[in-house]
């Protein structure tokens, strides 16, 4: 632990200040030759780990249907009221499906609660973090943008089963 000194404890050399400047500059110079800590972002992409909570997406099964049964639990738990679900009936085994599923990405706070309460593993957080819109209508993601094939989300689903 370094010594805690006050004004009265400073030595003459420290009071002269020039050695301090030299010390500070040498430290700074030293760190110029250390490996860089920053990421050159647009060229060098940040690769998130499996636990990363990016854009929420709907899981699309191999047959092209979504897993969602439109129970509405995600829209109930959403703290920022970003999700809207409208259910309809279907001939499939699951009987219900979301006719309309919209997430307002301006409202979404990426807390991951929708994924946590989903009883069907139908909505999960992806690794997508690059989202930019030019107007508000564009920011409302419908089913066309939300559906993502299950193969692309496998490591997140594995993470959920293992750690949640």
């Amino acid at each position: 632990m370094s010594v805690k000194r006050r004004e009265k404890d400073l030595t003459l050399l420290e009071k002269i200040y020039i050695p301090e400047i030299v010390k500070g500059l040498s430290l700074t110079l030293k760190s110029m030759f250390k490996p860089k800590f920053t990421l050159k972002y647009p060229e060098e992409k940040f690769i998130p780990p499996a636990s990363y909570r990016g854009r929420p997406v709907l899981v699309q099964e191999k047959d092209g249907h979504e897993r969602c049964v439109a129970c509405g639990l995600c829209s109930r738990v959403c703290p920022s009221l970003a999700i809207e679900v409208q259910a309809a009936e279907t001939e499939l085994e699951k009987e219900r499906y979301p006719e309309k599923f919209e997430i307002n990405m301006i409202r979404c706070i990426f807390c991951g609660f929708c994924e946590e309460v989903c009883p069907e593993e139908a909505i999960v957080m992806s690794k997508d973090y690059e989202m930019a819109f030019t107007n508000r209508e564009e920011a409302i993601y419908g089913k066309d943008k939300l559906l993502v094939p299950v193969e692309q989300l496998q490591d997140r689903i594995d993470f959920l089963r293992k750690y949640k």
Partner: peptide
């Protein structure tokens, strides 16, 4: 942290501006 402290803990300007 030691390195950061080395920069300011004996720095006269830093101490004079905070002491007292």
């Amino acid at each position: 942290l030691d390195e950061c402290e080395k920069l300011i803990n004996t720095n006269r300007i830093f101490i004079e501006r905070l002491d007292g």
